[in-house]
Nucleic acid binder design. Structure first.
Lengths: 260, 260
DNA sequence: GCGAACTGTTGCCCATGATGCAACAGTATG
DNA sequence: CATACTGTTGCATCATGGGCAACAGTTCGC
């Protein structure tokens, strides 16, 4: 059974049984449903082999069987995996050109972050033209209370959701980190009122950031868009103008995602 | 690493490497992206093992890597698999209650079929109350030109698409099968005009069927809905009334799918 | 700028898990 | 009712999956 190659493709042979399992999934995607014998024939393996491959996928809900001894089809596990991918793909794909323009406009590092496992998960980043930049945050999970993105994500949660997301004791990163819950809650009320959040020296000394919410078609906040840079560049005077640009860019991404 | 069990779950141990590969996908779905060492740690395997598992998934586009030696994320292959599942799941889920009512109303076998690989792929079936029924078509791919579902699917294709779907020589199943392209094209123009297709003794002697189109949110035809039964029951006199019921039911499914 | 500490990647050898075989149970069909 | 199919299972074999050691590349602290 051939191994499809791709640009920069791996030359080492793949794990054969994983490769076969993926072929099973593709057969089921193409045909809607299929039986063990049919799958075995298309794979070129014994039907007991096909049966075990299908069984392994069924155990993890990637494949399901309508009735015992019946035909198999793709299961909800595929949709769960895709759900994780597609929504984030949409956000990043729709957001990327907006982020690039904003990076040019404000000449700072632009980030998109989503709420994930009670942290701000950074899903995209576009660097400004300056040589001095923040490091790459993508893939990292950063504390909510000490980042502008995190503050935005927190600001639009219900009190219950917010309580669930914040540890009883907030971690102090610098002497400027807000660790008192009541001060944080008041601050987040202000974030919602103004439509953007700021941090100055709260995650680390010398780092200033400003963020605004990205809404989806249901009117909920699905991400926060931020600009960040060194404090000597992102001065207090400059913050309102940068915040306005970030807000407009976040609104643009929201519209692209179908927000009202 | 534990194997999640499920109701009616398989007791035999699954194919371990497939199981591990699925766990890799779930890790990436949950975290957005991860590196080889992190995946290995969560799987409890050596990082060379994780590397090969990820490589096998990457070969098939289920996983992708942003830059060489960088972190991995879920790839478009997942979306391709899910695309095959979700759209069909929608159609079948939205269509099922309508099919059940229609089966009761017209007392014949009801089918939903989609265009797949130049055939009519049957994706759902509800039997009428009669003891005499057609066999189960679900999962089968039947010639377009000799079925009412197929005629509906053909009728709404562009001339180019239609030419691509039909073999140069149409297969004759009975003496009533339409195998002349010009006669078929004229017939399909009529299908579009009337809003439904019929076949009498064209796929097999004694089998009568009537089908109508199902539209989606974009206004395109995504499926055909049919009622079929023996000719002595689905008489010529009865066909117009059954056709009208099938049309109304197809319109109902179309509305549920968001058709204009 | 350099060394240490990490990462991802690779070749190789062997232990083990994937596989095919034979057989069985269940279902469909003539 | 017998035959011919299907899906499923236990078992023995061997081909492959896997870990190890090492390497190349990158990051980071001093």
């Amino acid at each position: 059974m051939g191994n499809s190659s791709r640009d920069g493709g791996r030359d080492s042979s793949p794990v054969q049984s994983v490769d076969r399992a993926v072929t099973v999934l593709e057969i089921l995607a193409r045909q809607g449903e299929a039986g063990v014998t049919e799958i075995a024939t298309e794979l070129g393996v014994h039907k007991s082999t096909a049966f075990r491959l299908v069984g392994a996928l069924e155990n993890r809900s990637l494949v399901t069987q309508d009735v015992d001894r019946g035909k198999y089809r793709l299961g909800v596990g595929i949709l769960r995996l895709a759900g994780a991918t597609a929504a984030r793909l949409d956000l990043v794909q729709e957001g990327r050109p907006v982020c690039e323009r904003l990076a040019q406009e404000v000449a700072e590092t632009i980030n998109l972050a989503v709420l994930a496992d009670q942290t701000a998960l950074y899903v995209d980043q576009v660097a400004g033209p300056s040589a001095l930049q923040t490091r790459n945050w993508v893939g990292q999970r950063i504390a909510l209370h000490a980042t502008s993105n995190g503050k935005v994500l927190l600001a639009y949660l219900t009190p219950g959701e917010r309580a669930a997301c914040l540890a009883p004791v907030l971690e102090r990163y610098t002497e400027h980190t807000i660790v008192d819950r009541r001060i944080l809650d008041t601050h987040l009320t202000d974030v919602r009122r103004r439509g953007y959040a700021t941090t100055v020296d709260e995650l680390e000394i010398g780092l200033t950031a400003v963020a605004a919410p990205v809404f989806n078609i249901d009117g909920g906040v699905v991400a926060a868009l931020s600009a960040s840079g060194p404090g000597f560049r992102l001065t207090q005077e400059r913050v309102p103008r940068v915040a306005e640009a970030v807000r407009r860019a976040a609104d643009e991404i929201s519209r692209r995602l179908g927000a009202p």
